[in-house]
Design a protein around this nucleic acid. Structure first.
Lengths: 151, 151
DNA sequence: CTTGACCTTCCCATCATTGGAAGGACTAAA
DNA sequence: TTTAGTCCTTCCAATGATGGGAAGGTCAAG
């Protein structure tokens, strides 16, 4: 099967399949004489695994670890669980950050008339030199709003 | 005051101040003869406004809108509120996505012994060809985990 | 007049992903 | 058989916000 079919069957775009190959997340495939990549059902299965891990927000690095544990019959389930729980704690931290932002904003918006007049507590708060800048410190590795994982 | 002092006083790094200038979020500053940027207290005030908006997760684009409303004495507070509420809804969607991931993972981890044996429901789920790939579709514009907003 | 702290611009990296260009390969229909 | 259209290939660039660092100019204090 060609890359387009593998993409369709796995839910991972052809672009990303090539990318995953380039960074070594998946091995280099067999090629046809013309240079086309050829995929087996087994490859598609691996791609689906990767897609599901990605859907759960794992980084490519973590996914690489998960794939290698998946393929290791002698793995310790603890190693998998550790990765998962570490990720859960990152997710939960991010959730708290976002909740903090949302609740601050909702509070401000509730106090804003939202009419044609200029008075606005939201702007007042942003302009307030006293304002506490440090509800929750964003962590160093991940920001708070991310960018395209568009699919 | 020089850029370093403005950075310190505003909480926005010198790098980011130059970047904000380059993309037009803030106007080009006066320069000394030697080419050093010079900032006033008023500039610092604007930078603080920007930093606070950023701390609330607004995009640079939204911040540009907020700054311009801030400086517009004839603004309608509704315009500000709309931006804020739109952002709240983005935040809340993202929160739901992350919560969905975290709860799925916690559930799986709860059922994983986490010992030295290989059996692992987490991997089983990732490898499960039946698995629902579509709890919540990540939206097209923002991914789920972001990258450095490190500060 | 040197040292060190600051400033300048420019380029690169991050992370996962998409877009597009230029060109080759394949397939089905005219 | 030629042609159209779809697929594939590689390569390069952009996204968003931020940091790192190099190479070189400026300034203040000693």
């Amino acid at each position: 099967m060609n890359i387009g079919q593998a993409a369709q069957a796995s839910g991972v775009s052809a672009k990303m399949i090539r990318y995953y190959e380039s960074i070594g997340l998946i091995p280099k495939t067999v090629r046809t004489e013309a240079g086309y990549r050829v995929y087996s059902d087994h490859d598609v299965h691996t791609l689906r695994f990767i897609r599901r891990a990605r859907d759960l927000g794992f980084s490519v690095e973590q996914i690489a670890d998960l794939v290698s544990l998946w393929q290791d019959r002698e793995r310790a389930s603890k190693d998998v669980k550790d990765i998962a729980l570490e990720h859960v704690s990152v997710l939960e931290r991010k959730i708290r950050e976002l909740q903090e932002m949302a609740s601050t904003l909702k509070h401000l918006a509730r106090n804003c008339h939202g009419d044609t007049r200029p008075h606005c507590p939201i702007l007042e708060e942003l302009a307030n030199d006293e304002a506490g800048q440090a509800h929750i410190k964003p962590d160093a590795k991940f920001g708070v709003l991310g960018k395209a994982s568009a699919r």
